[in-house]
Amino acid sequence: MLEGKVKWSNSEKGFGFIEVEGQDDVFVHFSAIQGEGFKTLEEGQAVSFEIVEGNRGPQAANVTKEA
């Protein structure tokens, strides 16, 4: 699992980007967020995730919010 911080997200469009130190930003779709209820990410929020190869390149999977 990698750790990063949410660079920005748009809940209306359903995606955002995660900033990882020393690496390119990672695309995240809201379907990759683990948990119940409305899935949102806040700018600056710490997250853990895996990287998978998506249709348009690397993207985050199994995203969990850190406490």
Rank of each mutant, 00 (worst) to 15 (best):
S9N: 05
L41N: 01
G4E: 04
F38E: 14
K5G: 04
L41G: 00
E36Y: 09
V63E: 04
I33R: 00
F49G: 03
A67M: 12
S48R: 15
M1Y: 11
N55D: 11
H29Q: 04
V20S: 05
E19L: 10
E3W: 15
E21Q: 11
A67F: 12
I18E: 01
N55W: 14
E3N: 14
E43G: 08
K7M: 03
F38Q: 12
F17G: 00
V20I: 10
I18D: 00
V47K: 00
G4K: 00
F27D: 01
N62A: 06
V20Y: 06
E3T: 15
K39S: 09
D24N: 13
A67C: 13
I33C: 05
I18V: 03
V20W: 08
G14T: 13
W8A: 00
E19F: 10
E19N: 06
F38D: 13
E21G: 07
Q45S: 09
T64N: 11
K39M: 10
I18W: 00
K5I: 14
A67Q: 12
A32I: 03
T64V: 14
Q45K: 04
Q23T: 08
F17E: 02
N62G: 06
G4F: 03
F15I: 08
F49T: 01
E19H: 10
R56T: 07
F30V: 06
G4P: 00
L2W: 11
K65F: 14
I33Y: 04
L2A: 08
E19M: 11
I18Q: 00
P58E: 04
T40E: 08
V28Q: 01
R56A: 07
A46C: 14
Q45M: 12
F15V: 03
H29S: 08
L2N: 07
E66D: 11
N55H: 14
Q34I: 15
V47R: 00
F38I: 13
I51K: 06
G44K: 03
G44R: 03
F49H: 00
S31N: 07
F30P: 02
A60Y: 02
A67E: 12
F27G: 00
E19Q: 13
E21T: 11
M1H: 10
E66S: 15
F49M: 02
S48A: 09
G22E: 04
T40G: 08
F38N: 13
E36C: 14
K65A: 12
V20C: 07
G37C: 11
F38W: 11
K5Q: 08
L41T: 00
W8I: 03
Q23D: 06
V63C: 04
Q23G: 11
Q23S: 10
I18P: 01
V63N: 00
G57E: 02
K5P: 04
V52C: 10
V63M: 02
L2C: 12
K13Y: 08
K65W: 11
E3C: 15
E50L: 12
N62W: 07
E43H: 12
E42M: 11
G54W: 06
V63S: 02
G35Q: 08
V52F: 08
S11Q: 14
L41Y: 04
A32G: 04
K5H: 11
G14V: 06
K65L: 15
Q23M: 15
G4R: 00
E3Y: 15
G16A: 13
G14S: 10
I51L: 11
E50G: 05
E42Y: 13
N62R: 08
I51P: 01
F27C: 06
N10P: 03
Q34N: 13
G35W: 10
A61Q: 09
E53D: 10
I51Y: 05
D25N: 06
I51E: 02
G22S: 04
G54Q: 04
G37Y: 07
V47Q: 02
G4C: 06
N62V: 05
A60D: 02
S48H: 11
F15H: 03
D24H: 10
N10I: 06
A32L: 03
A67G: 12
S11K: 15
T40C: 14
E21N: 10
A61G: 07
N62M: 07
P58S: 07
G37E: 09
P58Q: 08
F38V: 13
D24A: 14
N55P: 15
F30R: 01
V63I: 05
G54V: 04
Q23E: 08
H29P: 08
K65C: 08
F27Y: 08
S11C: 14
V20E: 00
F27W: 05
N55E: 12
K39G: 09
N62Q: 07
T40R: 09
Q59C: 09
S11L: 14
N62C: 11
E50K: 09
Q45T: 10
P58V: 08
A61L: 07
I51M: 08
T64Q: 12
E19Y: 10
A32R: 00
I51W: 04
G44T: 03
N62T: 06
T64S: 10
R56M: 08
F27S: 02
V26N: 00
K5C: 13
V28N: 01
F17W: 07
E50Y: 14
I33K: 00
Q59V: 10
F38H: 12
E42A: 11
I33V: 11
N10L: 07
E43R: 15
R56Q: 08
L41P: 01
E43M: 14
V20D: 01
G44S: 03
Q59L: 06
A67N: 13
Q59D: 01
Q34S: 10
D24T: 09
F49Y: 02
I33F: 08
E19R: 12
K65R: 09
V26L: 08
F27V: 01
R56N: 10
F15M: 03
E21H: 11
E12D: 09
I51R: 05
A67L: 13
K7V: 08
T40D: 09
E19G: 09
I51G: 01
P58N: 07
G44L: 02
I18Y: 02
A60V: 03
A46E: 09
L41K: 00
S9K: 13
V47P: 02
V47T: 01
N62I: 03
E43C: 15
E36M: 10
W8F: 09
V47G: 01
D24F: 12
S48L: 13
S9C: 15
V26T: 04
E42F: 12
Q45F: 05
S11D: 08
E21A: 12
V6Y: 03
V20F: 04
N55L: 15
I33S: 02
V26F: 03
F30Y: 10
N10K: 05
E53I: 15
E53M: 15
E3V: 15
V47Y: 05
N55Q: 12
V6Q: 01
F49P: 00
F38Y: 12
F17V: 03
S31E: 04
F38K: 12
K39I: 09
G35H: 07
E21F: 12
V28R: 00
G35E: 08
V6F: 06
K39F: 08
P58T: 07
K13M: 10
E50P: 00
E50Q: 14
A46P: 10
G57R: 06
S9E: 05
M1C: 11
A32E: 07
Q59W: 06
A46G: 10
E42C: 14
S9Y: 15
A32F: 06
E19W: 10
G54C: 09
G16N: 02
S48V: 13
